[in-house]
């Protein structure tokens, strides 16, 4: 399978330098740890934000899935930055001249970010095991799979943005911030956004945000609930973002030469 092999080639290339620089990897892995240390104490005294409907009482059950989506957004949104650094040299151009499958080139790159994200997610889950957070293995596995698809989507979109910002690097960082924060704030990761709690315009905006559906699906999955409409919507949203990202990336590459 050429697509599979090519994706593996692109992925292995990007992962190589990460594995050869243990110091960088260590800092990346410290991030979830910091998050738990600086955020966990705030949660212990807090009322359950879900307003019921979940199988357990631990506030972690509600916060952790959202946190993973937050990590996914911030980690994979940087996928384009590495490309942006590589474009002024000939390294990216030389890849474009090879017969590597175009979709594989960008998915492979995004997958590298996703693998690091998954390692961070597993670390968070492991650190939470001693708390009252209840890990449901099947649900967690499904949740991480959904996170992978969503991460590929955000990663390839970031990649596309980098392709279009090659002549003006500030464009990349500007647009990325402009998109990242609304996606994050409107997804209900930090505070629940419901019809009752939010002004109607904000609520409507949050319902347009694909990340909202991914967050809700993650919450259901990590709670062990599979047969829910929310899960389906989340999967659809993640797949839609991924398909959009790959298509936009391939189109961007067709005119990628400077």
């Amino acid at each position: 399978m050429k697509v599979f092999n090519d994706t593996r080639t692109a992925f292995a290339r990007e992962l190589g330098p990460e594995l050869r620089q243990p110091a960088g990897l260590l800092f990346t892995m410290l991030l979830p740890f910091l998050f738990l240390v600086l955020f966990a104490p705030l949660l212990s005294g807090m009322a359950h934000p879900s307003g019921g409907g979940m199988n357990t009482d631990s506030p972690w059950q509600w916060f952790v899935p959202g946190t993973l989506v937050l990590l996914a957004l911030s980690a994979t949104a940087g996928a384009g930055a590495s490309l942006l650094n590589e474009m002024p040299s000939g390294a990216f151009e030389r890849m474009l001249v090879t017969p590597l499958n175009r979709a594989s080139m960008i998915v492979g790159r995004a997958l590298k970010e996703v693998v690091i994200l998954l390692a961070q997610a597993l670390l968070i889950l492991a650190l939470l095991l001693p708390t009252d957070f209840r890990l449901r293995p099947l649900g967690a596995l499904a949740g991480l799979a959904l996170l992978t698809v969503f991460g590929i989507g955000i990663g390839t979109l970031s990649f596309t943005l980098a392709l279009h910002s090659r002549k003006q690097q500030t464009l990349f960082y500007g647009v990325q911030q402009m998109v990242f924060f609304p996606l994050l704030l409107l997804s209900g990761v930090l505070l629940p956004i419901t019809e009752a709690s939010a002004p109607s315009w904000l609520y409507v905006l949050s319902r347009i945000n694909p990340a909202t559906y991914v967050v809700e699906a993650e919450r259901a999955l990590f709670d062990g609930r599979f047969a829910e409409a929310g899960v389906l919507y989340g999967v659809l949203a993640a797949v839609a973002v991924a398909v959009l990202g790959v298509i936009a990336g391939i189109r961007g590459m067709r005119n990628a030469s400077v």
Partner: peptide
């Protein structure tokens, strides 16, 4: 193809 820029990424190992 050998472009005007350097084909090998600077953070990578030569053999990789």
């Amino acid at each position: 193809y050998l472009g005007q820029g350097n084909s090998a990424g600077s953070n990578f190992r030569v053999s990789d």
